[in-house]
Amino acid sequence: MDQVELPKPVKYVFNWGRKYSLWCYNFGLACCAIEFIAASASRHDFIRHGVIPFAHGPRQADLLVISGTLTDKMAPAVKRLYEEMPEPKYTISFGSCANCGGPYWDSYSVTKGVDQIIPIDVYIPGCPPRPEALLDGIIALQERIQQESLPDRIAGRRLDPVTLGADTPLRLEAGA
């Protein structure tokens, strides 16, 4: 199981099932958390994408959304929380502060990017990003999950992180 790739149809159904039942743990640290809440509420409602907000705890969660300013003081808590989550687990860095420190780039107390302590799957830029951006990020993550190979995942081989807005058609043309 952990050595051999699943047969293609089985893999498809397996990943399809996983990507539409993401229990989401929101680590809300600042104003971005409000946008996260807006995304989970009725207008945007990411439950229709199969993301279930407010998991009972990290041990029941598949997806960790870091939304807000992470300080050095809080960093160990985030690290520990991430390690409590069972594999396979995914992370979204939501907002400029979580991505790189944002406006607090020169602060003495702010961690300049959550990716310094935990691996990130999707970066969502914005200060704060709109709820639609979170929906975009979730869809990007689901596409990754759909493509994922279980043996790779078990062996610890991760796909490169996605940054929303960075992969534009222009970039594609330049690469072609």
Binding site: D72, K73, W105, D106, S107, Y108, S109, K112
Partner: peptide, 26 residues
């Protein structure tokens, strides 16, 4: 209680150096 336990220096003193500002000017 505000900074991490092993923090060096006192950040609101005027002579406290911000590491990021040393690398990149304001």
């Amino acid at each position: 209680i505000l900074t991490v336990e092993n923090f060096e220096g006192f950040p609101l003193r005027k002579d406290f150096h911000l590491a990021a500002r040393v690398a990149k000017p304001w």
